[in-house]
């Protein structure tokens, strides 16, 4: 209702695409979600100009909280330069007149599907997640009435069944992404499909984390400085992924790596999945075993649209 007055005269859509009443409704859900960390708040998800599964929940959350002073970053699989990330970033640059960036430190709103950036999050930053399936228990219990009762009564024994299966089959808890967490020792939550490597970053985070599931019509949140514990067994403690290889481009040994197949002869390279982080390290002069490779040239920062 108090949209910025300096809009271009030829604007076709309302500021940040959604109408003001819709944004108000979504903000109310967000506030409730923040008040009850980890609880899934239903909201009236709208049709968006992208299909379900492409980030409609995240886009609606971002549209409701964004303002012209924000600096927006969007990543997909950790990279700023993938098709989906580029088009969502351009979308908000166009409908919300925001500055965009690839630098994690500069951004005030970071929209993501699969990763939390490597650079530590700071106070005042907001992470927005695009969530495909908000219900961690859904794979084991198809009835919504039943999973709601389980959340209400804190009956989370069922979630351990999937961990049990994993240990029985692989000798360890093998789940790689969307690894279930307990928020503030109360609500069981699916942290979207981020790798479990990123789960510890949610614990006592400085930033606010908002999760939007467009198709499933749910919003949930992890406020700053909230306990987030990944589930595990007493004799099989939670552990994150690790790699023997360093990043082939920036030599980093602590980041989350993507494996890139180079040719048909079995050659491969491991590179940081967070492209902004990797680029920054290379600018600082770090170089890995494959520095100078053709891939090294691909993700030089280009001008934001």
């Amino acid at each position: 209702m108090n949209a910025p007055s300096n809009l271009p005269a030829n604007r076709v859509y309302n500021y940040a695409y959604l109408d003001e009443q819709t944004k108000r409704m979504i903000r109310r859900s967000i506030l409730k979600a923040i008040a009850i960390p980890g609880y899934q708040v239903p909201f009236g998800s709208r049709e968006m100009p992208v299909p379900y599964g492409w980030g409609t929940g995240g886009i609606q959350v971002t549209a409701s909280i964004i303002g012209p002073d924000d600096v927006y970053k969007c990543i997909d699989q950790g990279a700023d330069d993938t098709t989906n990330a580029v088009s969502i970033r351009r979308f908000f640059a166009r409908v919300a007149d925001v500055a965009t960036t690839e630098q994690t430190e500069e951004a005030t709103i970071i929209q993501t599907r699969h990763r939390i950036p490597e650079a530590p999050l700071q106070e005042g930053q907001i992470m927005v997640y695009q969530v495909p399936q908000p219900e961690p228990l859904r794979g084991l219990e198809p009835r919504e009435t039943e999973t709601r009762a389980m959340h209400a009564y804190e009956e989370y024994g069922l979630q351990y069944l999937s961990l049990y299966e994993s240990v029985a089959a692989y000798g360890r808890i093998a789940g790689g992404a969307g690894y279930p967490v307990l928020v503030d020792e109360r609500y069981l939550m699916s942290p979207s499909p981020i790798p479990k490597f990123d789960n510890p970053k949610l614990h006592q985070s400085e930033a606010l984390h908002l999760f939007g599931a467009g198709r499933e019509k749910r919003i949930y949140a992890v406020p700053p400085h909230t306990d987030v514990r990944s589930l595990d067994f007493e004799d099989y403690p939670f552990e994150i992924q690790s790699w023997d290889e360093v990043c082939a481009l920036c030599n980093c040994d602590s980041s989350y790596k993507d494996e890139v197949i180079l040719d048909d002869d079995g050659n491969r390279m491991f590179v940081c999945s967070d492209s902004a982080y990797c680029g920054e390290r290379r600018k600082q002069g770090h170089s890995g075993p494959l520095a100078g490779h053709a891939l090294d040239q691909l993700d030089q920062p280009e001008d934001a649209e």
Binding site: G157, L158, L161, F233, D235
Partner: peptide, 11 residues
């Protein structure tokens, strides 16, 4: 499963 449902957490 009933053990996990009743709070057992030792695989």
């Amino acid at each position: 499963e009933p053990l996990m449902m009743n709070g057992r957490r030792h695989y």
